[in-house]
């Protein structure tokens, strides 16, 4: 049976991994290679590397940073940001990506999806869709790092992208980005119900329980998060333990299994143990949020 994927989204800005808040504020995390190594060790299922500098400044993909990240990555890596043509796709794939992700470029010229899928196959093409909620309550696809309105309905655009050759949809709520309020479940459900390809939910995870809701209530095929993985040691292992306790079939590599351990309401692991040397049993939050 297919495991539900837990995906880490690494946001690259000027060659460094950063935390993004509402597509406006950025806090530096560190070098791509280090972040990738940790996530690998903790058993992440997949990594998405988004180069927001390339998108906003219209630069070509940063192949040096991609190669650095890819070199220590032994899970699939999807790379996005700044991809303008098939030559950029080739450069990204040659640097170590397994899939690529297109957003603004596909919006400007949807035929690009078909062109890239013809060469690299549908399964390599991830169409990333950024969505904002309009004041009237509806949803609208936005482009260019959230700066440009498109007037497009997310479900309709997802259907068109798939018809043109997209193999997966990476769905990001700009309003929820960095908010810790959880996924916009209504949006996730809307798009999951619109297409037959895998839909990856992104944007807003503040507690590991949000990942469960993305799958159960949103109907997401896979769940992605960015900032939460940077807050805590062993975050991936903790996230998967919460998903597994909720009955979701996740891949848990042998290295560390935390099932059956209790968590507090903020998703922190309560390490409960009886240690002869230290005396009586104690509860302790080993990972602070």
């Amino acid at each position: 049976m297919l495991r539900t994927r837990l995906i880490a989204c690494l946001v690259l800005r000027d060659g460094l991994i950063v935390q993004s808040v509402g597509f406006r504020r950025y806090l530096p995390i560190g070098k791509p290679r280090i972040a990738v190594e940790f996530l690998n060790r903790w058993g992440i299922d997949e990594i998405v590397l988004l180069d927001i500098t390339a998108t906003v400044q219209g630069r070509n993909p940063n192949t040096e940073a991609i190669a650095e990240a890819a070199g220590s990555c032994f899970v699939p890596m999807t790379v996005g940001g700044g991809i303008q043509d098939v030559a950029d796709v080739e450069a990204v794939m040659r640097s170590g990506a397994d899939k690529f992700c297109t957003n603004s470029r596909a919006l400007r010229e949807p035929a690009f999806i078909t062109e890239a899928a013809a060469v690299y196959g549908q399964q390599s093409v991830v169409v990333s869709i950024d969505v904002r909620r309009r004041q009237d309550g509806g949803y609208e696809v936005v482009a260019d790092g959230g700066n440009r309105r498109t007037g497009l309905d997310p479900a309709a655009w997802a259907r068109e992208a798939v018809a043109r050759g997209a193999g997966e949809v990476l769905l990001n709520s700009v309003d929820r980005d960095g908010s810790k309020l959880g996924y916009d479940l209504e949006l996730v459900r809307l798009v999951s119900d619109a297409v037959d390809v895998p839909v990856i939910a992104l944007g807003g995870v503040g507690r590991f329980r949000d990942l469960v809701d993305g799958v159960r209530e949103g109907g997401a095929t896979a769940v992605a998060a960015a900032n939460i993985f940077h807050y805590t040691e062993h975050s991936v292992i903790l996230a998967k333990a919460v998903m597994r306790d909720a009955g979701i079939n996740v891949r848990v590599p042998a290295a560390a299994r935390y099932e059956g351990r209790p968590f507090d309401q903020r998703g922190r692991l309560l390490a409960h143990w009886q240690d002869e040397a230290q005396g009586p049993a104690q509860d302790m939050a080993v990972a602070s949020a």
């Binding site: 049976m1 297919l2 495991r3 994927r5 390809v197 895998p198 896979a222």
Partner: peptide, 15 residues
């Protein structure tokens, strides 16, 4: 064959 439940591509970790 694929479909809404078994979406294609078949992407992810399987046993």
């Amino acid at each position: 064959s694929g479909g809404r439940v078994h979406r294609l591509p078949h992407v992810g970790w399987n046993a």
